[in-house]
């Protein structure tokens, strides 16, 4: 059986700190796979390894049957892996639309001669780039803000723009690092349907990191749990909340019910946020 993405015994150290140890799992494609775990579990580090920001000390990363462990980040993007950042990294000097344009392969592969001569075919290609990006703005609901500076947007919208920018690279696999962080309940509901749309209609495979359990259980088809750099569980949204190790390691018994989202009144959500802050 072939998988879209396979992480094989990934191990990574930061000096003496073991950030990832012997992590193995796969993304089977056509699924929304979630990666969860307490703060500092190594989730972002794993993303950075998949996208090539960090090199693994051990293990391999196989994408579409190709070992990509030693490729540069931009080469992995060309293969179809795109990501968003937990700490937003948009271009503040540029407009909302420009933040998407520069990520579009048609735009960032323009040649010197083409740009100087502005021939007919070249402009036609440019037109398609703009149309693609405007369609993405439409999808993420930012069409009216196209000429605004990217960082003048409210926080939640900046997160959406990050997703849009990753989409503009025309990815096969989309990695979302805490896409709902800092969003309110309404925004999170919209985000859920946006991610589902991207997965179904736009046929992107999705791997996401998220803190909010309710959100994760609602959106994902399968869940991987990391703790202290190790995979401690893997299973369906039905299985994971019942898993003893997960309950023990990740959530702390007393808060578990709260996190599992069976009782997600606004008061509890606030509570959840403050707990999340505390962990940080």
């Amino acid at each position: 059986m072939t998988n879209l993405l396979r992480i094989e015994q990934a191990t990574l150290y930061f000096g003496g700190l073991r950030a990832l140890y012997d992590v193995t799992f796969e993304h089977r494609g056509d699924e929304i796979l979630a990666l969860i775990g307490p703060n500092g579990a190594g989730k972002t580090t794993l993303f950075n390894s998949i996208t090539g920001m960090y090199k693994l000390d051990g293990g391999r990363i196989i994408f579409q049957e190709k070992d990509i462990s030693n490729m540069r980040p931009y080469e992995r993007v060309h293969l179809g892996i795109a990501r968003t950042f937990q700490n937003i990294r948009l271009y503040s000097e540029l407009t909302v639309l420009e933040n998407l344009l520069l990520a579009h392969p048609g735009c960032n592969r323009e040649t010197i001669w083409g740009s100087l001569l502005l021939g007919k075919n070249f402009r036609r290609n440019r037109k398609k780039v703009v149309e693609d990006c405007e369609a993405i703005l439409e999808l993420i609901g930012l069409s009216d803000q196209a000429t605004q500076s990217a960082t003048s947007l409210p926080y939640g919208k900046q997160r959406l723009l990050e997703i849009g920018r990753a989409l503009a690279t025309d990815p096969v696999l989309l990695l979302l690092d805490e896409p709902g962080a800092g969003m309110n309940t309404v925004e999170k509901a919209e985000l859920t349907s946006l991610i589902k749309t991207i997965a179904k209609d736009r046929k992107r495979h999705i791997l996401l990191i998220e803190h909010d359990m309710k959100f994760v259980l609602n959106i994902s088809d399968r869940i991987i749990v990391l703790d202290h750099g190790e995979k401690i569980a893997e299973g369906s949204p039905e299985e994971i909340p019942k898993n003893e190790d997960v309950v023990e390691a990740y959530l702390g018994k007393q808060n578990f019910e709260l996190y599992s989202g069976h009782d997600a009144s606004p008061a509890n959500l606030d509570n959840e946020k403050s707990i999340a802050e505390e962990i940080k």
Partner: peptide, 28 residues
Amino acid sequence: RRLTVSGIGLAMLSVKSDEIAAESVGIR
């Protein structure tokens, strides 16, 4: 003028302000 408004210009600006983000969208 032609170069700086092109994809090349945008890519250069992205390299100036954040190389890591630039690489993460496929810019070398």
